[in-house]
Every structure is written in structure tokens, then in C-alpha cells.
Design a protein around this nucleic acid. Structure first.
Lengths: 294, 294
DNA sequence: CATTTAACATGAGCTAAGCTCAGATGATAG
DNA sequence: CTATCATCTGAGCTTAGCTCATGTTAAATG
């Protein structure tokens, strides 16, 4: 008997799982492209290594022991994960993982996903929407859309576009609260998103030196804009995120005063990371989408 | 290059995962008990098989590609499952999986689990609570407690005990509804569990030839008894399940009329299945628990 | 009851996957 | 420019994993 405490070779687990699933060594051998004899040996080696009977042999009748059944089921799960991970990696020249803020994903990217899929039906684009700055290497992310004043030094960054910031609300809200001039805003509910400093800045730009106090932060920009669509108040909308809502009339911008945002959009990738045609296609498509805007 | 569509050997995935986790081929080699050279070969074979670069080599600097990072993460998960399944199987002479009804598990077994663990601290007893008749072979179950009139022919069955059935409710409910004689039950809420036929049978045994209609089935016996404890009405309690509740006063049995249940408890195992000391210990403990009762 | 069939087990021995060794290569630090 | 550190690689070995041929067992068949 082998050492009872060493890890068994993965191959023997693989062979055992096939035997359990196929219900016989001969059948398993066929599936694996080896002989019945090979399967038999692997299984008995495994049983010796584990110190446990996995099959009950009764002449031509083979059946799993409870332990064997349990092990086989768990191994089947684990291997299925394994092979799907491998399949994923193999198709990876067509897989691109792109990280962005949840608000950008929901408000800007989602409506354009259909267009992307039409333009690149063969690319499997995966979005990682998160508010933290992903670690490209450890999280397996190919590229990201970042919203920041300056990109990090150790990343290869290209500017996608600038944007402006302006108050937006539902059409109903604007008429009910008679929002015609910036001063009318003193009676409105100010919805406060990711960057609270922008409200005072906007009021100053609009010629109101004593801006009203802004309320508490209600959530991220995505939630704020949804609240504005629902007529809950006025949000400071980043042009990129509200463009579609304004086009469709879900939101209106009652004032002409807009602010150049302090943050820009960047397409970033780890410096020196190998590129693929698929990643370039995504990059180019993104640039195309931003250009339409300006 | 190898065939790009064959499954890579599991071993190469294992070696790759170690390399990714250890952050270097040398370190991985140490962990696996092979040389750096061996790791290097496995990894480049894998890359060839997948047709994808997994690591970026830069002289002495090694880093994962996004694909490699993704793959490594998924493989780490899968292997961790694999090894824990193996560890499980290895300890299997101390593991016993026992199937029973959820109601029995909750009402009868759970309060006794502590006693079992005290009596057999070394046995890892796992309960599978389900209402369907488990398939011992495919689900890896060693034995079951079955509640039925007759055990199945192809199982080795030993009678654990009989039981009686009687109405039970909370003490408050009994006094509020003045439940003194079976006839008083016509005004009570009859909670109806797994075996609805028992109510009419009980009324007949109690000398009430025209039993009231029973309500809809509210759930399984476990839920019904909980409802009775909560003062929702009167349930037909199987003695085994309510014994503890009556001892502690959570439930009372207002009438002396009880019914011999048509079902018995059986300890069942697949015929001819190998036994282990641990399984026998569980079996004997179960018998001991049932004997205390009578 | 003998025979056939359909499995799995096993002894002997082969072979190639997986490994080692030793030296090459390339990046980085001092 | 040299030392160091880590990976790569050509050549070749070792053994896990296979095959083949034959033995064994249980159940179906005649």
C-alpha cells in the first residue's frame, strides 16, 4: 500500500470519476481512450491510496460504495468547473473583460451593449462593474474605463472623453417646481451623488454665491439618476450618463449653465500587457462611441 | 504544438495553478516536490495545448496574463473542492451519512444530536433531511430512518419502534377552547399534516362517528407541530415527534384516546452493503434511543 | 448442471509523459 | 561590467500509466 496521507494523483481521480459515471470500467476506458485494464489499475491504486473501498465488486457486477458515490459526485462537480475554466481560457482570444463603475455600466454601457454585440458577434465581452479600482493582474481584467482627473502612472491610459455636469430632473418635476432660473433651485430637493463638491461649484458657476446646503449622499450616481427619473428631485447629471435619458425625455436639463467636470474618462490597461485583436476591437469601439457624442 | 482541442492533462493544470499561486516556477517546484525545470515544461506544454499565453516572461520577472489569472483563480477553486472531497473520502471510516424525514430530523433527532456527539465524539455523523426516498447508491447515503408501514423488499430493515398518534396543542389553546372531551374538538382548528386520513380515523376511535371536515394540508408534520406549539390549533402528533414537546410543556395532549399509527420506524440499509464500526455504532445508538422511550 | 457471456483482476512488460541535470539566456542591481 | 537570480532548453532518464494476454467470478442461458 502507498502512503495513506499523500495526495492521490489527479489522473486517478479523473479515471475513477469516469468509471463511476459510466457505471463500469470498460465503458470508462472507452470514454477515456484507454483499456479496461488501465481503468481497473487506476481505481485500485486510488482505493489503496485512500485506504477505502470505492466500488463493490461482485464478479461482473460493479456498484459504488456510499463513500465512492459521495466522492464521485463531488469530483464530478469539481471537474466540471475545471473543464469549463479551461474552455474559457481556450476561447480567451475572443474574451475581453472590461471593468467600469456600476453607474457607467448601467447608464452608459448597457444601452450600447446591443450595438457592440452586433458589431462584434464573435467577441465575448464581460463587464466587471465595481466601485473599487480592480487589480488587473490578480482579477484577470484586460482593461477598464476609469473616471478620474488623472490616470495612474503605472497604467497605459488614453483619454476617451471629457464631460460636463448639469442639473437634471424629470419633466414633471421641472414644471411643478417652476424651475426656470438657477435661483428657483433653492426650493428643490438636491440629490447628492458620488461627488458632493460639485453642487456648490455649480451654484457658483450659475451666479448664486450662497448655494443651499446639499442633502445627505443618497447613493452612487446610478441610484441618484434613477431617483431623478422617478421625480424625487434634481440630480447633478454627468453628461455621459444622462445623455440617453435626455434624448428619450426621461430627464430634462432645465438650465443652460453646465460645468466642466473635474474628472475625465480614460481607457486604461496595465503597461506592457500583451494586446489581442479582440481587446483592440473593444478599445476602438469605445472610442467610436465617445466620438459620436462630441 | 499539440492538438488544440484535446483536454489538457490535469497534472499540467495542477502545476500551473501552483505556479500562479506561488508566483514563480521555482517556488512552485518546491511545493510540488519537483524541479523548476519540470514546472517550466508543464506550463509551456499547457500554454501550447490551450494556445494561450498564461504567464508573461520578462527575464527574471514573471507575471500572469489576464487569462492566466482568471484560469488560476478558477482552478484554485476547483482543486480546493477536489482535495476536500478526497480528504472526506479518506476519513470515511468515521463518516456516516444518515437520511431521515425533515420532521424527524428537527423534532426528534436534533435534540439528541448532543447526546450522540458526546457518546461518539470521533464519528462524523451527517444528516440528509429529505422527504423523498433517497437512492442510497447514487447519493452516498449509508443508512436511513424510514417511516412506513412495511420496509421495501430490497433493503435490509430493522424495526426501531412503533408509535401512537394523538391530538396535541399548546396548554393555552386547550384551556381557551375548553378541550375536555373529544366532542369539544368540533370547534377547534384541526391542523392537517402529512397523513390527512389520520384525523377521521382518530375521531372514529374517540367515538365520534361524524368527524368534522379537516382543513387544508398546511405543510409537513414539522410545520404543523410548530403551529400547534404556537397556539394555532390542534395537530395530530406522532408520539415520537411530540414526546419532547410534551415533556417540556410546550404541547399538551388533552385526550387519552390515542391511535396506533399505521406507520412504523425502520432502520434501513441497502442489502449486502458493507458495514463499518461507525455505522454499527450509529445503529446501536439509535436503538438505545428508541428503547428509552418504551 | 454445464456452458457461455460479460464483467473485472492481474502478471509481465512496454512507452511516453513527466522529470532531472547542466548549461544557456536574459533582466536587474550594485 | 559583473554578480545574481530566475527562467529556458537540449539531452536523456525514470516511472506512472498503459497494454496485452490470461485468469477469475457471477449471472444468464441452454
Amino acid at each position: 500500500m502507498r502512503q495513506t496521507h499523500a495526495k492521490p494523483p489527479l489522473r486517478s481521480l479523473q479515471v475513477f470519476e469516469a468509471a463511476a459515471r459510466c457505471g463500469g470500467f470498460t465503458a470508462a476506458g472507452e470514454e477515456l481512450g484507454i483499456t479496461q485494464s488501465g481503468v481497473s489499475r487506476q481505481v485500485s491504486d486510488l482505493e489503496a491510496t485512500l485506504g477505502v473501498a470505492l466500488f463493490l465488486r461482485n464478479g461482473a457486477n460493479l456498484s459504488l460504495t456510499p463513500v465512492g458515490a459521495r466522492l464521485a459526485r463531488q469530483l464530478a462537480d469539481a471537474f466540471s468547473q475545471t473543464w469549463s475554466a479551461v474552455a474559457d481560457a481556450r476561447r480567451s482570444d475572443q474574451v475581453v473583460t472590461l471593468s467600469m463603475l456600476p453607474s457607467v455600466a448601467a447608464r452608459w454601457f448597457a444601452p450600447r451593449l446591443g450595438d457592440f454585440m452586433r458589431a462584434h458577434p464573435d467577441i465575448d465581452l464581460r463587464i466587471t462593474a465595481s466601485r473599487h479600482l480592480v487589480d488587473f493582474a490578480s482579477e484577470g481584467v484586460d482593461a477598464a474605463i476609469r473616471y478620474s482627473p488623472e490616470p495612474s502612472r503605472d497604467l497605459e491610459a488614453v483619454k476617451l472623453g471629457t464631460e460636463t455636469v448639469m442639473p437634471v430632473c424629470s419633466a414633471n418635476y421641472a414644471s411643478e417646481h417652476a424651475l426656470h432660473a438657477p435661483a428657483d433651485m433653492y426650493s428643490a430637493t438636491l440629490l447628492c451623488g458620488d461627488i458632493p463638491e460639485d453642487w456648490p461649484t455649480w451654484f457658483k458657476a450659475a451666479g448664486c454665491p450662497h448655494p443651499p446646503p446639499t442633502g445627505p449622499r443618497l447613493g452612487d450616481d446610478g441610484a441618484i439618476l434613477q431617483a431623478a427619473v422617478d421625480g424625487q428631485g434634481v440630480a447633478l447629471g454627468r453628461s455621459l450618463l444622462v445623455a440617453d435619458d435626455i434624448t428619450t425625455g426621461r430627464l430634462v436639463a432645465p438650465f443652460t449653465v453646465s460645468l466642466d467636470a473635474s474628472h475625465l474618462y480614460w481607457f486604461v490597461r496595465p503597461k506592457g500587457m500583451a494586446t489581442t485583436p479582440a481587446i483592440n476591437a473593444v478599445k476602438n469601439w469605445l472610442f467610436g462611441q465617445f466620438e459620436k457624442k462630441s
